[in-house]
Design a protein around this nucleic acid. Structure first.
Lengths: 208, 208
DNA sequence: CCTACCGATCGGTAGG
DNA sequence: CCTACCGATCGGTAGG
């Protein structure tokens, strides 16, 4: 066993490290993630792991990047072939919700991005920037879907796509918290669906 | 300077420790909080600090407890004397928003509770339980204010207080994230106010 | 409330 | 990819 493995083998090892890092970070956070624990889990030495990344920060960025690829496959890709407009917007929302409901299969400790956001929001550096970028991109994409739905005539012209995207973000933060902290996916799903219907269709009886 | 201080002095020291612990934990998280750092900041020894709490976990719980007292003074107390119903509910919402907008004065690293929630939501133990309890209590109290507003005839009888409280929670998670991660309090405040108006008054033009 | 200390673990490096 | 090691720091204890 040992040094001088083929390029393909090295890449496979790197992938194994990243996968395990994602799982660990979802529980302990990207800061709580340690190279020693990772080494033990993978049956490797710490130096073996660091050889692939150089520093812990690079490893953290790689884990974040790998996780965002998983998210894209789980949420965006799944809605890709739906009809542009409200159908695709609803498909994205549906995929996002079910990602949060079943994420433990991918991220044992819950949504890695939510955790990372609060871990780094009071700091400076590459990780904070990377996390902020992810949220910004997703928000923009969400707003784009809303805008498409407005242009298709599926939502009223008065709809503010950025406002709706903002509120959707809040709903998913709430859904994640409800599932992870209170362990009640069913109630949370029902509440989210209700809020979503009101937000996307305004089918609520007017008041005042 | 030394051992054998008066009970009053000991209590003052304990308060100093808790205050500093809250500030540190708001930046580093309750897990990232370390006794060594706390000792350096306060010009004390680690043993001097541990003498007041015994273990780090007890210190963390004391910090969480102290922070929740600050939150109550900042949000609940401030709305206490408003007229029960929509006025008091709006006052609570207003106080909650402005707490999140100005919290850096109290909690330099942002809302300690949001951070604590994601830190412990994948674990077991006293801290997870304490954090979950806080969120549950606040949610229930918020729902109570909504219910009062419904009973006062300020909101339609069809209003679901728990649903509204749930959505309000999401709005505050979003507001906190927007401020801490994107550093844009003005935009976030505007969006929150807009969402709030729609949520509490349903003044939105119906669609479909 | 202090000094002095414990074993464990941290991220990272040297050298192969 | 490994062994062997570095200084720093962790939570916590003994004893005063």
């Amino acid at each position: 066993m040992s040094p001088r493995k083929s390029v393909a083998e090295a890449r496979r090892t790197r992938e194994r490290i990243v996968d395990r890092a994602i799982a660990l970070a979802s529980v302990e956070g990207l800061e709580g993630l340690t190279i020693g624990r990772l080494a033990t889990d993978l049956g490797m030495s710490k130096a073996g792991i660091l050889g692939h990344f150089g520093t812990k920060e690079t490893l953290q960025l790689a884990a974040l990047d790998g996780a965002s690829a998983v998210f894209s496959r789980t949420v965006w890709e799944r809605a890709r072939h739906e009809q542009p407009g409200l159908p695709r917007l609803r498909a994205v929302c549906e995929a996002w919700s079910s990602y949060l409901e079943t994420e433990r299969e991918i991220f044992p400790g819950g949504c890695l991005f939510t955790t990372a956001a609060v871990e780094f929001d009071a700091r400076h550096g590459a990780l904070r920037d990377a996390v902020a970028r992810l949220f910004r991109v997703w928000r923009r994409r969400l707003a784009g879907e809303v805008r498409t739905a407005v242009e298709a005539g599926d939502l009223p012209a008065s709809t503010d796509p950025d406002q709706v995207a903002y509120e959707l973000g809040g709903l998913y933060l709430a859904l994640n918290q409800e599932i992870q902290l209170f362990g009640d996916p069913e109630a949370a799903t029902t509440r989210t669906r209700k809020a979503l219907d009101r937000l996307l269709a305004n089918t609520v009886t007017p008041t005042v």
